[in-house]
Nucleic acid binder design. Sequence first.
DNA 1: ACAATAGTGTCTGTGAGACAGTATCGA
DNA 2: TCGATACTGTCTCACAGACACTATTGT
Lengths: 217, 217
Amino acid sequence: MKNISEKQFLEQYSSEHYEKPSVAVDMVLFTIVDDALKCALIKREEHPFKDMLSLPGVFVGIDESLDDAVKRGIGTKAGLHDIYFEQLYTWGAVDRDPRMRIISVSYLALVPIEKLDTTALLYSCDEIGKMQLAFDHKKIIEYARERVKNKANYTNIAFEFLPEEFTLPQLQRVYEILLDKPLYKANFRKKIEPLIIDTEKMTGGAAHRPSKLYKQK
Amino acid sequence: MKNISEKQFLEQYSSEHYEKPSVAVDMVLFTIVDDALKCALIKREEHPFKDMLSLPGVFVGIDESLDDAVKRGIGTKAGLHDIYFEQLYTWGAVDRDPRMRIISVSYLALVPIEKLDTTALLYSCDEIGKMQLAFDHKKIIEYARERVKNKANYTNIAFEFLPEEFTLPQLQRVYEILLDKPLYKANFRKKIEPLIIDTEKMTGGAAHRPSKLYKQK
DNA sequence: ACAATAGTGTCTGTGAGACAGTATCGA
DNA sequence: TCGATACTGTCTCACAGACACTATTGT
């Protein structure tokens, strides 16, 4: 196994003349509203892809970690703080941006609709499937959609879509939307039981049986 | 949801004066030999971390996709072509390299020991756990180790460690090493049965019952 | 015959899936 | 009482886990 010398490193890669790609983080911000998983998008106001929709993103500063760039992006573009996010995948096709070489580190962010700015542009994943988006952002959203579906099965990400206190019918609905299939009530409750705590509180006011309020364990 | 103008884009990020991070791909090349999962490492010959072990990696060229950089790296550093690889995670801590800002896109690569150059430096994951490595490479290897363990459960990556034809005891041993736990022979065979094809060939020569040779379906 | 490894038959418990039932609210 | 939604009990079936057994080679 060969090694190249540090000298080569510096000559080839560190010099002022070596052309570096730009690095951006793009955020797939998902929420659930109106019984659908929706993604926050931005309308582009400049070329390329003028007037098309794209993911919110920011370039990564030279003194800023990727995660910090994401926090800044979520704050700047959506006014949000302290929400769940995780890295998805890094997209590096040479021609993914016609202006210049940009490598995009994509992130998944989840937020309950209650926390979200009402002016945000939200599009359901179903709609997006039939739309054209700027750059390779449609592919990125599809990747995020798959990740969410998979992780709903073996993690607790579903809770990120709900406020601190919630009912089991609400939680079940979130799972059904994420997994894109109906679930049996009784089975769902048996499976979810170890993950939740009864708050001793109830909902009320509706013309039917009230439901218990739970929070995540 | 606010958007920033393209003008700001160009001013802030595209100008000659905007300092960009470097982007590298680092490869976690795993193989199985001597009943252990081992990782290919390189001895650093220059500062920083002189004489310490590190992952093989290359910088990403301005006209080169991430995957192409990985292929080039695997070819240059290990003389390999057409092996399995997948992206792992992108590491972007500001101080992960003391020389300069380098964002590392890590990749997992798997290869059967038969294909691997005998001069490669191989260290078992257990050993690496007790060693010090250059940069954040130890953390990257631990991440790769987890990924392999998880994916062994629901994908066919185990086959990447074996030649085209193999016996079930061999395959079981691969799974045991990846999952780091013993498996029951009969159960293993029932579970793996739909994934394999009998080649009608047998091993032989040993002082015990020969075993059938299979290939991946 | 024996050592060593390859390969099989079958019991058990757990948990997902399916469905039918009961409970509690407002009107 | 009724409509609507919340909640529960229980059967079945598939499959992972565990273990005991049989089979086939060279020496």
